[in-house]
């Protein structure tokens, strides 16, 4: 890919992600509604919600909390740009982690008990999902010899063939990242929660909209990660992404929310088994069976 297409991809990411993520969320809500024998909202509902939030009054507990949200949004976008411009995957992951840290700090700074508990739970979720993200980058590295998205994208054969375990692990933590049941510990869109709205409790109006926006960017970025597994065959990739997203909705609709202990233990155990297992197997296979 030439530099220009890469820059174009990054620009498109910045411009289109909110709309794309909005449509995706709208579809998600409709499909969920259908699974619950309901009609559900219009397709554009998430976008209406977002725009409405920007029109609401700005209220906050103190004057410093929203500054961190800005960091959340900026660094999520930065991570996305780095990804779509074909940069270093590890940098993408670290920028994403930095963004999440900003989000959590914002909730801490809000100084309300519910957002505090939400923030602690969000941290647990980050802790549960972070190793798999890094392992995903490592998997690409073992398979292609590079952390650069451009190199990974340019592989002639789909990486899913050599990295099925990593892919499974990524689907697992995608559930955490998309805040779907059974992993919607820190906040969730629909269900009522023991911690109210958790990490977003204190953020109203435009501030909530910033969170939604950043979450939209994050969703598209994570789907981009999954896309890399099928990069040479875009149609297959699209089909796989749709299937994965449908799977997430299905999981959301067929599970109760579980405990943080369970979330942490299973995601670490699962990603350690399938992720690290895949990595080590691949490592030895590449060495031709001579450890």
């Amino acid at each position: 890919m030439s530099a220009w297409t890469r820059i174009l991809a990054a620009i498109l990411f910045v411009l289109l992600s909110p709309i794309l993520a909005g449509l995706l969320a709208g579809l998600d809500r409709i499909i969920s509604a259908r699974m619950q024998s309901r009609i559900g909202p219009p397709l554009l509902q998430p976008i209406y919600d977002l725009l409405k939030l920007f029109q609401k009054e700005r209220i906050a507990v103190n004057r410093s909390g929203h500054f961190f949200l800005l960091g959340y949004l900026l660094f999520t976008i930065l991570a996305g740009i780095e990804f779509f411009i074909g940069g270093d995957l590890l940098i993408v992951i670290f920028a994403l982690a930095l963004a999440s840290v900003f989000f959590v700090l914002g909730a801490f700074a809000a100084g309300s008990p519910y957002s505090h508990i939400g923030a602690e739970r969000e941290l647990i979720q980050i802790m549960a999902s972070e190793p798999m993200l890094i392992m995903c980058a490592m998997g690409f590295y073992v398979a292609t010899g590079s952390f650069q998205v451009t190199t990974i994208h340019a592989q002639p054969t789909p990486l899913i063939a050599t990295l099925p375990g990593i892919f499974l692990g990524m689907i697992y933590i995608l559930t955490i990242k998309l805040r779907k049941s059974p992993f919607d510990l820190s906040t969730s869109h629909h269900a009522h929660q023991e911690i109210v709205k958790g990490i977003t409790t204190e953020f109203a109006g435009p501030y909530l909209a910033i969170i939604e926006l950043a979450h939209g960017y994050e969703t598209i970025l994570l789907l981009g990660f999954l896309y890399l597994f099928f990069a040479p065959w875009p149609l297959l990739a699209l089909a796989a992404l749709i299937a994965v997203y449908f799977l997430e909705i299905l999981a959301d609709n067929t599970h109760a929310r579980l405990y943080w202990q369970w979330v942490l233990r299973t995601s670490w155990a699962f990603t350690a088994i399938v992720g690290a297992g895949n990595l080590i197997l691949l490592h030895y296979l590449q060495r031709g069976g001579t450890p």
Binding site: A97, M127, E130, P131, I134, M135
Partner: peptide, 15 residues
């Protein structure tokens, strides 16, 4: 590869 895997888990705990 086992080394960076352990490091990945450990560094998420530091976070």
């Amino acid at each position: 590869p086992i080394l960076p895997v352990i490091v990945a888990f450990g560094s998420s705990a530091t976070l």
